[in-house]
């Protein structure tokens, strides 16, 4: 059956690949192209994230992950913040990994710190930001420090929640509990089953996030956004909104914002670079697979407020 499905998909792709007059408008075609760009760029990172997640859950001893993390919450979250240095996958790949870490005993609050910090505190993002900005204006240092501080404060706040499990969707919480209860089966079979379950949970969110991000590229009125660029307050919120809606990979967002950098205030550029990897549309859709809507809304609110304060502070203090 699996091979039949594979054959049908391949034949469908070959049959439709050479259609010359696809019956959609130019704007729709551009939206599809943008969406495919986001999806195809994210897919290998998501696959890698799921693979690492499966390895953590099935192949590593249950005590191993927690053993190497500090016992005290503050230090544990600080250590998790820099985990991205060793696992340099894009932000979308971190979601399946965070799910795996939760299933292995990490608290949801700690996983929130990891999710928010890892996309910024990873070597590829840091190198790309350095390549674009160098040490100019302290943008690189501010980005890294802000990512670390905001992620750890978010983790600290959520760690005060008395019932950590209630931060998770019922479905995901149940699957974590089920993982602990179930009878042992072969590791390979369990790995394959877990890969299928995680892919089924993550892929719809990735498709939906990619489609929305692609669509917004076409309907977004950039000239209006750019007109707000010089205002020290509006520019911060404008670039924050832009970062959230365009859902750009944290490895490339520095290259993108450089083209707008001369038109926008320094605080707004920093706000763009900090908020995008944490809570863009694609990430929000992916986080919804794991955390309740209320939790995701609280995470987004906290990050938005923190980054707004940072951006405004940079603009008015400099």
């Amino acid at each position: 059956m699996a091979l039949v499905i594979l054959g049908v998909l391949v034949l469908l792709r070959i049959a439709t690949g050479s259609i010359e007059d696809f019956p959609v408008s130019e704007a729709t075609q551009d939206a599809i192209t943008f969406s495919l760009g986001v999806f195809l760029e994210s897919l290998p990172f998501v696959t890698l994230g799921i693979l690492v997640s499966v390895i953590v859950q099935v192949w590593l001893p249950p005590w191993l992950v927690m053993r190497f993390l500090p016992k005290r919450g503050v230090f544990r979250r600080a250590a998790l913040s820099v985990l991205g240095v060793f696992l340099p996958v894009c932000e979308c790949g971190n979601v399946p990994l965070a799910r795996g870490l939760i299933a292995r005993g990490l608290t949801p609050a700690d996983s929130i710190t990891f999710l928010l910090a890892a996309p910024i505190l990873n070597p590829i993002t840091i190198l790309a930001t350095w390549q674009v900005f160098g040490w100019d204006g302290g943008i690189l240092v501010t980005r890294v420090l802000a990512g670390f501080v905001i992620a750890n404060f978010a983790g600290l706040i959520f760690s005060r929640h008395p019932v950590q499990e209630s931060l998770l969707t019922k479905k995901f919480a149940a699957s974590c509990a089920h993982n602990h209860e179930k009878e042992p089966v072969g590791r390979v079979s369990e790995s394959l089953a877990m890969f299928a379950r995680e892919a089924a949970a993550i892929m719809p969110a990735l498709v939906a996030g990619s489609l929305i991000a692609g669509l917004i590229q076409v309907v977004l009125d950039r000239p209006t956004l750019l007109a707000l660029g010089s205002d020290p307050v509006l520019s911060v919120f404008t670039l924050m909104i832009l970062a959230i809606v365009i859902s750009m990979c944290s490895n490339a967002d520095a290259f993108f914002i450089l083209s707008l950098g001369s038109l926008f205030s320094p605080g707004s550029v920093i706000a763009f670079l900090v908020i995008g990897p944490m809570v863009d549309i694609k990430m929000i859709a992916l986080m919804k697979t794991t955390f309740t809507t209320t939790t995701v809304a609280q995470i987004v609110s906290f990050v938005v407020l923190s980054v707004a304060v940072l951006g405004l502070w940079v603009n008015f203090a400099s």
Partner: peptide, 28 residues
């Protein structure tokens, strides 16, 4: 399926260029 397996590969239209600034700095 429509996006991945039915829509034929396509490049961006030149219309989009009108909404984006021309890159001029050497870093970009």
């Amino acid at each position: 399926i429509a996006m991945l397996l039915i829509a034929p590969p396509a490049t961006l239209s030149t219309t989009i260029a009108g909404q984006r600034d021309v890159a001029e700095s050497s870093a970009r």
